[in-house]
């Protein structure tokens, strides 16, 4: 099993579903795409955590306060786990954390281009500010559902150490989404609350949808060849829509 004819190119290996295991066996092009993928994840978690910090003080009750604190803490911890993988490639963790103001947000009503904003690689949805508790719950629930779909896709990623980390944190991210839903449930009990929630849903729904990227994206093809993606943007979006629509209907928020 060790003769020369038994080796294949990394490209063929990846195309056939092979996994890579360390920075040492990662080709340059792959490394760049993988780093980009991980950067986007880390930046989104850090921005998500930082943006949610204010929600702690807007929480209406102690349970909600604990839930919000937990989300802020755990998202930062998830960022660190992936940042640790990036450190294996030479990323300086401390500097990375300081490289952007993770709590910075743009204006609420100016559309953010879904492409990367400067060096900050957070998903575009994390550039919009939260306005109040109901808004925070809606954003967290809708984006949480998207995260569940996106992380499910990431567990198939061909860089095994990343797939392992994602498998470890996915259940916790799912719990964050559920905490958002529980918040929504309580808010939607009264008419006034329901109106505020509906308004927030109208605001966040299209912005979360945009995080799935464009249909027929070139980047998807490139990533799929490297085993870094397996399901198209449009399929993932459809999966999220089905889930979100069903849950909103259940809460009579659709």
């Amino acid at each position: 099993m060790t003769n020369e004819s038994d080796t294949m190119s990394i490209e063929d290996y990846l195309a056939k579903g092979g996994k890579l295991s360390s920075p040492e066996n990662v080709p340059v092009r792959y490394r760049a795409e993988l780093m980009r993928l991980m950067s986007s994840f880390v930046d989104s978690e850090l921005a998500g955590s930082a943006g949610f910090a204010d929600a702690i003080n807007q929480a209406p009750g102690i349970r909600e306060r604990i839930a919000a604190s937990r989300i802020v803490l755990e998202k930062a911890a998830h960022a660190e786990k992936v940042l640790d993988l990036m450190s294996d490639f030479g990323t300086d963790k401390a500097k990375y954390n300081q490289s952007h103001d993770w709590s910075a947000r743009g204006p609420r009503d100016t559309h953010v281009d879904t492409r990367r904003q400067g060096g900050d690689m957070r998903l575009s949805v994390f550039h919009y500010p939260l306005s109040g508790w109901a808004d925070a719950c809606v954003m967290n629930a809708l984006m949480g559902m998207a995260t569940v779909v996106q992380m499910d896709e990431m567990t198939g990623v061909s860089y095994a150490p990343l797939a392992d980390v994602i498998r470890e944190i996915a259940p916790v991210e799912k719990r964050h989404m559920e905490l958002g839903l529980e918040g929504l449930e309580r808010l939607a009990e009264g008419d006034e609350g329901r109106a505020a929630v509906k308004e927030a849903v109208a605001y966040w729904y299209p912005r979360v949808a945009e995080t799935f990227g464009a249909a027929g994206s070139d980047r998807y093809d490139r990533l799929a060849k490297l085993g870094l993606r397996h399901t198209t943007n449009e399929d993932l979006l459809a999966r999220w829509k089905a889930d979100a629509d069903a849950r909103l209907a259940e809460l009579k928020l659709a």
Partner: peptide
């Protein structure tokens, strides 16, 4: 300043005012 060292994050962006250079990779 730098972060990823892989030509991805653009933390290390700088401007060349004089001379000739070549980039190994640019994904940012």
């Amino acid at each position: 300043p730098y972060a990823c060292k892989a030509g991805v994050c653009s933390t290390c962006r700088a401007k060349v005012l004089e001379g000739e250079v070549e980039m190994e990779a640019n994904h940012a």
